[in-house]
Design a protein around this nucleic acid. Structure first.
Lengths: 214, 214
DNA sequence: CTTCCTTGGAAAGTGTCACTATCCAAGCAT
DNA sequence: ATGCTTGGATAGTGACACTTTCCAAGGAAG
């Protein structure tokens, strides 16, 4: 498969593919001669993943490169490789240490994790980008005057835990580590918007049931 | 409160506040004379909401203006006002009608809604931006070769339905429609990232429980 | 009063980012 | 040989969220 065909089958313009090659998001094809390179199904698959990351997941090109670097790093163990790939995904803004709301948020998040018995999350704590961004988000809610304490969040966290258990069950069906890590990245970037859409649909449905359409 | 104080208390530069005024995201202050305008707590609150929408929710300025327009439109009924505000939020890319994956995705989403008994969502169907973006997202998953059928999604949808019911319970605690709509927007834009962070934290926790930290 | 600082408003400029257009010389197909 | 496509390099584009610069009018301090 040459560039033009890769472009046709993926729906991505040749100029953009060249751009991704330059940015290291896509491995170069097998060079046949000075003016021809050949691509395979793997390139097509990777290109579709890159598109999904960037267009659906709104992942910046630089972050996408980091994520894919970890996905491709076969020297790492399964868990580390997965963590490295997921932690490279962009998170919400960092917490503002100056802000008193951040201190309150830190307390609430810690209380939440204790309530839930998520000991690992508590121990890793501020090391995890996810943990830090959760603190920043809770701080923003507090600043706007919306209650966002451990009691409010706990039932939602339980629901998300059920979802996460299901995610891992699905991932265990993959044989190779590479497939698993790739599916985890896909899940984080593509399945989360699906969850969000389901959430909003459920809100519309429930709202219509309670108050009618009017 | 004058511009400088509004800026100090919100942490937003005066230049940026002027920009928001120009863009119609913030109502002008009460003009005291040719060179002085006065702002109140309401302006501060709205400014913080605007910041949250743009910085945390990554809502484009133009969309934020649309959303706030509906939030402020007291002539509308509660349900319509809420729907209008939420539908103005940016969604994932639109489905590509050409793509055969879109057809498959439409089938699966319809099957899902039938399984769940979400009749309103089925009837509104393609009218809802949320519905359309769900179809587009499922199509992307299918294109990448990940199973994303009604059976896979149904349990997640049930979980999201529980979350949505809880959301509406929380919203009912607000007295005025304006407060309620504002909290719904906040919930959609700020609480969804909280849910996402909880989801990822839960994944880390569950993964550590199953496979250890290594 | 006058000098300095601040205010709000308008217009143009900046930085980032994801492309996209333009060139170019080297093949390959007719 | 001629007209196409190819890969590669470089510069340009458009959207977007600010920022900077400039200005004239107002108020405050000496």
């Amino acid at each position: 498969m040459r560039l033009a065909e890769l472009s046709a089958r993926s729906g991505v313009s040749t100029a953009t593919i060249k751009y991704y090659l330059r940015e290291g998001l896509l491995a170069p094809g097998r060079q046949l001669n000075a003016t021809t390179a050949e691509y395979d199904e793997g390139h097509l698959r990777r290109l579709r993943l890159v598109r999904a990351l960037i267009q659906v997941g709104r992942v910046p090109v630089a972050s996408a490169r980091e994520v894919l670097k970890h996905v491709d790093d076969e020297s790492l163990g399964r868990t580390i490789r997965l963590g490295a790939a997921l932690w490279a995904l962009p998170q919400a803004p960092e917490p503002d240490e100056e802000d008193p709301a951040t201190a309150a948020a830190t307390t609430e998040v810690d209380r939440l994790l204790r309530t839930l018995g998520w000991e690992t999350a508590r121990e890793i704590g501020a090391l995890s980008p996810v943990h830090r961004s959760l603190v920043a988000l809770v701080a923003t809610q507090i600043r706007l005057g919306y209650p966002c304490d451990a009691e409010t969040m706990a039932p939602y966290a339980e629901l998300m835990h059920q979802a996460a258990a299901r995610d891992l069950d699905r991932m265990e069906t993959y044989e190779s580590d590479t497939e698993m890590v790739e599916s985890a990245v896909s899940s984080a970037v593509l399945f989360e918007p699906v969850l969000r859409a389901l959430h909003r649909l459920a809100q519309e449905e429930e709202s219509a049931r309670r108050y009618g359409l009017e």
